[in-house]
Amino acid sequence: MSGGDDMAVWMQARANERASGLHRGDKTSRTITSFSHPLSAALSAPRKSNPWVEILNDGGYRSDGRRQYELRDISIDLAQQGTADGSAVLTHGLTQVLVTVFGPREAKMRSQTLHDRAVLNVEVNVLPFSTGERRRRARADRRMLELAATIKTTFEPVVQTGLYPRSEIDVFVHVLQQDGGLLQTCINATTLALATAGIPLLDFVCAVSGGVHATSPMLDLTTLEENDLPHVTVAVMPRTNKVTLVTLETRLHVDRFGEIFKLACEAGQTIHKEMRRAVKSRTSALITAMGGGLGHGPGADVLERDIVMDDVHTNDDF
């Protein structure tokens, strides 16, 4: 698992490569999902805040070789994880998150149940090796509690909790690697995990982060960009284009906000396509597996057959 150190080295290598004119133009081949926008031609002069890496260079490329509106690689793994009811491993570039969902199930603490709907319980766990510097966080890290609360409020209007009174839905988020866009990755992975757990959702929730460099907006920021730019995370429900979350931790000019907000909503649609494709293919894989097991039909002839087989010969089989 590559940590942030490797990342820094890699990014620096890319920057050097570009500086020495080795940069290749066709970056799209590396990226599954790219998001193009008519505005992408309008590029501004880059501001140099980091002596090593330019946020956006004269050619219109970012420090990791992406264009302004290009999203990072997305990979989705919806394989079963242990005894969880639903799980997803989602990777946005170098940010990787594992989410496991348990429930709806009997609440651990009965005092916290609600008589008319299920309680959504989100816990975030950042693994010590996920960042560049290996350090163990306190269990009650303020930032992580806030992240958990944000995820919870994002999903409360989306999950149909009213169908499961007195129950609890547990969402455990494990951050495996961090390179910016942590909240967006957590939200997207939680959506996928809830969908695989068969928990009714009004819609997918697709989150993406955006920032502004000088006057040029950018999507899906890395740590390097997040440190230097004002950024915003937007979560949309793609069918209705309703927004369930907008967070802004830094100051952003009000004129830029509208632009970046619209872009992020559009990028959410692109991410939705990827997520829907992953869920669909998992569903059809499971349906096929279920069909494959009973070639002679689940219907009448199974029911007719007598189940008990009387010839017991315990020791002959060994």
Partner: peptide, 14 residues
């Protein structure tokens, strides 16, 4: 490191 053997290879799905 969980075993996840029910899934076909990633490339096939995506």
């Amino acid at each position: 490191a969980f075993a996840s053997f029910a899934q076909p290879p990633q490339d096939a799905i995506f």
